[in-house]
Each structure stands twice: as C-alpha cells, then as structure tokens.
Amino acid sequence: MAVVITEELKAKSEVYYGDEICREKSKFLLQEVNLPRGLLPLRDIIECGYDKETGFVWLKQEQKIEHVFTKIGRKVTYAPEITAYVEKNKIKKVVGVKTKELLLWLTVEEISVTDKAPENVTFTTSAGLFKTYKRSAFELEEEEKKKMNIEDEIEKIKLSPLAPAPAPEQASEVVANK
C-alpha cells in the first residue's frame, strides 16, 4: 500500500528538490544501507525525501523510465513516484518498481543483501518469487570503470619490472667509469 506524502510527513523529513542533488542523495542513502549505488538509475528527479525516524523514503521523477541492467539482461521500470522503507541491508515495501520476467511485469517488493553473502543482491516480488544476482551488476558505470582502471594499473605494475637491468657489457662500463 502506497504511503501518501503529506506536508506533515515532509515537515519531519529531509527533503530535496532537483535532479542533481536527489541523485546524489539517493546514491548516498543506498551506500548507507549497504546496497549498490546503481540500484536506482533514475533521471529527471523532481523531489526526494527521507524520514529517518521510520526509514521511509520517496523519489519523484518527471516520468516513468525503463532501464536495462545489461550485465544480467533485466529490464526494470521505475514509476514517476517510488516509495519504500530502508534499513541496513534492505529496502522493503517498495512501491513503483517492476521487473520483466519472461512476458510478465512483476512488482519488486524487497531488495536485500545478507551478511553471509554481501556480494549478492536478492530481489523479492509481491508474488513471493525471488532472484539473486551479483552485486557488481548494480554498481554505477563510472565506479565500475574506475575499478577496472585501477585493476588494469595494478596488472601493468605486476607485469613490468621496476627498472630495466643494464646489459652485462654496460654494467662493466659503469663500474670502470667510477
């Protein structure tokens, strides 16, 4: 059941307006509850809010969007208004997010990770079905690229010697010149 976002609720919540700040706040909140920062790839966000006391969050965007998580081949739709409750390792009572499974659109009701398997993210639908994916499938592209660049640099360092050793004939010249 969707929660109505009233002025009273807004008065006791952190509320932000505008796409840039709302994107940053949503990424920060996902990070704070230990979920991948790329789970909510929203655009043109008008308003977002967070009631710390209850864990209730909402995001309003200009229009519904579809996003494909290419690493897992899943299409997800995000309604113009998304609401949920957040707590450590979990987003529950989600309203406004659906995923396509075969020919059906299923409502995502919960997104979670466990301490036993923090590398995985589990999605549970309102029908009780669930699916688990690797966390890396939901990382932000720029973070993934940065991670790949760092890994590439480490590999280059491992493969290249620190300084080329002088050839044996050059080594004797160096000693003779001293």
Rank of each mutant, 00 (worst) to 15 (best):
A2Y: 05
V3R: 14
V3T: 15
V4K: 06
I5W: 07
E8P: 01
L9F: 06
K10F: 04
K10L: 01
A11K: 13
S13Y: 01
E14T: 11
G18A: 03
G18H: 03
D19H: 11
D19S: 11
D19W: 02
D19G: 03
C22G: 07
R23D: 05
E24Q: 15
K25C: 01
S26H: 02
S26Q: 04
L29A: 13
L29C: 10
L30C: 14
V33L: 07
V33R: 08
L35W: 08
R37T: 06
G38V: 10
L39A: 10
L40M: 13
L42D: 00
L42V: 05
R43I: 04
I45N: 03
K52G: 03
E53T: 05
V57N: 07
V57A: 07
Q61F: 05
Q61H: 02
E62W: 03
E62L: 06
Q63Y: 08
E66Y: 09
H67F: 14
H67Q: 06
G73V: 02
I82C: 10
I82Q: 11
T83C: 03
Y85F: 14
Y85P: 03
V86I: 14
V86M: 13
K90Q: 10
I91A: 10
V95N: 05
V95K: 06
E101N: 13
L102P: 00
V108C: 05
E110F: 09
I111A: 13
S112N: 11
V113C: 11
A117R: 14
P118C: 09
E119R: 09
F123G: 02
S126L: 10
S126W: 07
K131S: 12
K131H: 07
K131Q: 11
T132V: 06
A137G: 05
L140A: 04
E143V: 00
E144R: 04
K145G: 04
K147R: 15
M148R: 15
I150R: 14
E151T: 08
D152I: 09
E153K: 14
I154P: 08
I154A: 14
I154K: 15
I157V: 12
S160L: 12
S160D: 06
P161G: 01
P164Q: 12
S172V: 13
